[in-house]
């Protein structure tokens, strides 16, 4: 690997746009992961150690069934939120690419 190359990567990495991009990306990754991991493990914990959600809600359908079902919607909704977030970040990435010197990195 040529030294000039590695300088270019460092240059991008220290640009204010890239730093801003990574701050937003990591913040999203961190908080969304904590959220869905806790939401998901709440299911086996509540189901395995408590009978809290066994109350019937619609006819014989009980709370734990609805909570399990809600996991599917949680996953879908979070996926759509992520896509909206990532599409915004794509614009920042386009900006970073535009600022690159003509000879493209490979």
């Amino acid at each position: 690997m040529e030294p000039k190359h590695s300088d270019q990567w460092k240059q991008i990495a220290s640009s204010s746009e890239f730093i801003k991009l990574m701050k937003r990306r990591k913040r999203f990754q961190f908080f969304s992961t904590i959220f869905f991991v806790m939401y998901y493990f709440a299911l086996p914990v509540l189901a395995g150690y408590t009978g809290l959600l066994n109350t019937r809600i619609f006819g014989s359908i009980n709370g734990i069934y609805l909570f399990a079902l809600s996991q599917f919607f949680m996953a879908w909704i979070l996926a759509f939120i992520y896509v909206r977030h990532a599409n915004q970040l794509d614009q920042t990435i386009e900006q970073i690419k535009k600022d690159l010197p003509k000879e493209a990195l490979s």
């Binding site: 992961t33 734990i64 069934y65 399990a68 996991q71």
Partner: peptide
């Protein structure tokens, strides 16, 4: 019954790790 359904939940939620990370 329910335990079978609970088993299936993790197979979908796992894709959030794939997608986000």
């Amino acid at each position: 019954g329910f335990d079978g359904f609970m088993y299936s939940v993790g197979w979908l939620v796992a894709y959030l790790v794939v997608l986000i990370i």
